[in-house]
Design a protein around this nucleic acid. Structure first.
Lengths: 205, 205
DNA sequence: CTTTTTGATTTCGATACGAAACTAAACGCC
DNA sequence: GGCGTTTAGTTTCGTATCGAAATCAAAAAG
């Protein structure tokens, strides 16, 4: 029984990945949120300030702005997201999780998956992240899909010394970035080739 | 910039896993199938004979039999699945992918993910499968969810010498198993502790 | 001061999904 | 053999999710 194609093939891994994502997403709480609502709530908790808009979520979640707007509205009605009008641009709104939203996130069904992954060794987690990141970039490259990455790793990050004001900025939006945004998701994220090998991802070929 | 908590944490991995599953599942073909339809089509192509029923798919996909029945019916209408009445039990029906179904599967959007994973090294794929399998079992244990596994690895497999007829069987259903079913998914799959270390998974410590 | 572009929202129709009712076959039991 | 129970599958029906297109409003361009 050596070398069956089954048990360790890419297809098998892909199947398990799908299955795992689905089963780990099941919300069996009393007042469940839909998968889309969970995705939005997580997104607004983890994205950098300039990304926390309905459009930002739409591009992240590969859906339309209309649908994103409704999902966000439903979370606002539930008191889980709070609306913040942008000062400079009167069209733009951004959202932040409320106290209730953060509380709800502490009971995110995804925690089960996090807990399972937390039992792995440090090295296994790091390797898993690398593998997932690389696959995400490969899949995104083959179609129009957003990649998950933080402002601090983005090729569009403008160093503090190149901006007026001394704060680093995003070359896409022109926004200044707070230090906290460095580790947050950015919807304009693009992998920075020159940085490969310096970060956790992509350094072993 | 060493050792940020962000880029390699279990939470980050879980986020990427969700995101990857979602983006790899996008069907941008001319006549798209829904995610549920794809899941069903894949299932009926990969499950062992006794598992290829509407109920089997329902338990695999963590949905109701009613919903599963509709999904299957829609695929039958599209000519992608063929209905086969069970000879012994007049209630039971099972389904198989048609030629058109197999053709459609060759254009499964999941192939993009398979291709991305195929670029990894042999060892990385194996490790990934182990990690996913372990996480799946951990998540499934924390709730009522099916685990993905093949008849050949199942604790319910009855060896050929213990059955009349000389063919191995499934202790759950009593069915005899064809050799081809050994590498196929079984909805009654339960990990066999005594077999750990003998199969591809779990064998590296 | 238009015209165009961009961000957000609303409307509307299609449809996926789950809960529950229903049909039918197999099984158990005296 | 007859009768209730269990199990497999299907149907019905209401809810609500989602995407396409239209609408609104602010900013930018010309």
């Amino acid at each position: 029984m050596m070398q069956k194609t089954g048990p360790a093939s890419p297809q098998c891994a892909a199947d398990m990945l799908f299955h795992l994502a689905r089963s780990a997403g099941q919300d069996d709480s009393a007042t469940p949120l839909t998968p889309a609502q969970w995705a939005a709530l997580r997104f607004f908790a983890r994205a950098s300030r300039p990304s926390r808009t309905p459009s930002g979520f739409a591009s992240f979640h590969a859906t339309t702005r209309g649908t994103a707007s409704q999902t966000v509205k439903s979370l606002e009605r539930l008191g889980l997201l709070a609306r913040v009008r942008a000062p400079q641009d009167g069209r733009s709104v951004s959202f932040e999780p409320t106290e209730a939203g953060r509380d709800r996130l502490s009971r995110d069904p995804m925690r089960r998956l996090e807990a399972a992954l937390g039992r792995l060794s440090e090295g296994d987690v790091r390797r898993l992240c690398e593998v997932l990141q690389a696959s995400m970039e490969a899949v995104a490259g083959a179609q129009e899909a957003a990649v998950l990455g933080t402002c601090g790793d983005c090729r569009n990050l403008t160093p503090a010394e190149d901006t007026e004001g001394g704060l680093p900025g995003c070359a896409c939006t022109g926004d200044r970035l707070a230090p906290a945004d460095f580790d947050r998701l950015c919807v304009r994220y693009a992998p920075d080739p020159s940085r490969l090998g310096k970060t956790a991802r992509g350094g072993h070929e």
